[in-house]
């Protein structure tokens, strides 16, 4: 059996939404180079909707695939829904991750939440609406 599912390999080989949003409404970064994984998420939010999302990742195959899948799962979705994204949903959408790679999906969830926190800190009024 291969190390990763075909879905993981597909998202690793052809990551979706790679890059930077210069005028992002929220930016989140998690992990550190010491541990070998860093994810950075950029969000463009309009009318409480994730209009655009981009990511940069330094990390292993599953870290890149998890970032890619997480962006796919929230793109075009209401902010409230993006807020609900779980690492489990990311891993399931990738047809599973090896146990010792589950932390990659956790990083993806955290990176998005981090970016949303950044957005809310720039727009405190939005937070109250929730």
């Amino acid at each position: 059996m291969a190390l990763y599912s075909e879905k993981v390999m597909d998202h690793f080989r052809n990551p979706r939404n790679v890059g930077v949003i210069e005028d992002a409404d929220g930016v989140g970064e998690v992990g550190n180079a010491k541990c070998g994984d860093i994810m950075k998420m950029y969000l463009k939010i309009e009318d409480d909707k994730i209009e655009d999302v981009k990511f940069e990742t330094f990390g292993c195959g599953s870290a890149i695939a998890s970032s890619s899948m997480a962006t796919e799962l929230i793109k075009g979705k209401p902010v409230s829904e993006a807020m609900e994204l779980t690492n489990k949903a990311v891993a399931e959408a990738l047809d599973g991750l090896p146990d010792y790679k589950m932390h990659c999906s956790v990083l993806a969830e955290e990176a998005i939440k981090n970016a949303l926190d950044d957005y809310y800190s720039r727009h405190p009024e939005k937070k109250k609406e929730q």
Partner: peptide, 8 residues
């Protein structure tokens, strides 16, 4: 490196 935040 093209999409590595460390490299950037």
């Amino acid at each position: 490196r093209g999409f590595s935040p460390v490299w950037r």
